[in-house]
Amino acid sequence: MCLAIPHRILRLFDDKRALASAGPVETEIRVDLVPGLEIGDVVLVHAGFAIERLLEEHGQEIEALWEEVRRMAGTGHE
């Protein structure tokens, strides 16, 4: 329902607007929905607005699940 693409913040114009890049695309985005953003932060952008800062880690649950998948499917039985 909601297309959102990661962007890196290149410049902060004021507390509402920033220049951000998604690969080779540079666009002006709104940053006022996520307080405290800094240059270099990677944010998810939906409809021209940053909606959250992205973390680098995938989180524990994903790691654990992957481990189980490898154990299960890698060997061919549970």
Partner: peptide
């Protein structure tokens, strides 16, 4: 083309 793909991703 990487640039074209980025545009497509962004605009859906």
């Amino acid at each position: 083309d990487e640039a074209s793909i980025s545009v497509c991703d962004l605009l859906g």
